[in-house]
């Protein structure tokens, strides 16, 4: 009996202290709580509000907003958004890979070079949009100035939807390539140079070394870049707004155009919900394809 009592008190003590350990962790969670609450309050709740409002017509649940969306140019704007995003991503990946690979090599002026290609990272999107609007002016403009100086014919840049979108997707490279280049450069610098030397000794040419060593090494980083940049690409707003206005429409300009008129605001909520879905689908796709392992870390 005496032993039993002793055991009991011992174990209740243990239980009490166990609770204390979780309480210690709770303190650390409390440190993080303001930031987490801020992010939830200002993003999840608004996002839920948007989705909720998109299903409301005169206070009642309805799919009306979605049923009229196509007549506001939904399908074209989704197509245009995809064209711009995919095109811009490709341009940025290729340029970034070139920059990252060049930065791996020693050459005179490499410091100045890396400054020049990284500085645009800090440029405001709106400044970039303004400058490219000066470069790609329909009549005249600096791009045509270059073409004419080299004896080519000037181009009417904003002549069709496709060329309009082309200008947007190209202009996006300036501000956003540096980040992709920095990510890829991080991947390239982690490859041991001895690996390349060994491959050279084994008779692998430059192309084989690229496909067998470089690409596998940076494949996970490419998927990270695709995720980070791809999501932002779906969100581009200032650039198309300045360069092409509302014609042709992309999803973001469609959302904004309808938001700015009170009568069509529910339409903008529905379009925003569609954009949210596309971005979620894209993120899941990229994570499943390539980044899942990295992401899990």
């Amino acid at each position: 009996m005496h032993i039993r009592m002793h055991m009991d008190s011992e174990f209740s003590g243990i239980r009490e202290r166990r609770f204390k350990i979780t309480r210690k962790y709770l303190v650390y969670v409390l440190f993080a709580l303001p930031a987490i609450a801020y992010v939830i309050g200002l993003s999840i709740i608004p996002a839920i509000t948007v989705v909720y409002q998109s299903f409301l017509v005169a206070g009642k649940f309805s799919l009306y907003n979605y049923s009229v969306l196509p007549s506001y140019g939904l399908y074209a704007s989704i197509g245009n958004t995809l064209i711009v995003s995919v095109g811009a991503l490709l341009i940025q990946l290729i340029l970034a890979l070139a920059i990252a690979m060049v930065m791996m090599k020693p050459f005179a002026g490499s410091k100045i070079f890396s400054s020049i290609v990284i500085i645009p990272f800090g440029i405001s999107t709106i400044v970039s949009a303004f400058i490219f609007s000066l470069i790609f002016t329909n009549v005249g403009g600096f791009a045509n100035g270059v073409l004419v100086a080299f004896g080519f014919k000037p181009v009417v840049w904003f002549s069709s939807s496709i060329s309009d979108l082309g200008v947007v997707m190209f202009s996006d490279f300036w501000k956003n390539t540096p980040l992709v280049a920095l990510i890829l450069y991080g991947g390239l610098s982690s490859v041991s140079p001895t690996l390349y030397e060994a491959a050279s000794v084994d008779g692998a040419g430059a192309f084989k070394r690229f496909t067998h060593i470089t690409l596998p090494a940076i494949a996970p980083l490419i998927s990270i870049a695709l995720l980070v940049r791809g999501v932002s690409e779906f969100n581009i707003f200032a650039l198309p707004l300045v360069l092409i206005g509302y014609h042709p429409l992309i999803l973001n300009t469609l959302i904004y155009e309808n938001y700015s008129t009170l009568a069509t605001r529910p339409i903008s909520y529905a379009a925003a919900t569609v954009l949210l879905l596309i971005i979620m689908a894209y993120s899941i796709f990229v994570l499943k394809i390539g980044g899942a392992k990295q992401y899990a870390k």
């Binding site: 003590g13 243990i14 166990r18 350990i21 210690k24």
Partner: peptide
């Protein structure tokens, strides 16, 4: 040592 100095809690005792 760490429980003695107090940077880790005792479970009991």
């Amino acid at each position: 040592l760490r429980v003695t100095v107090g940077i880790e809690d005792l479970t009991a005792g």
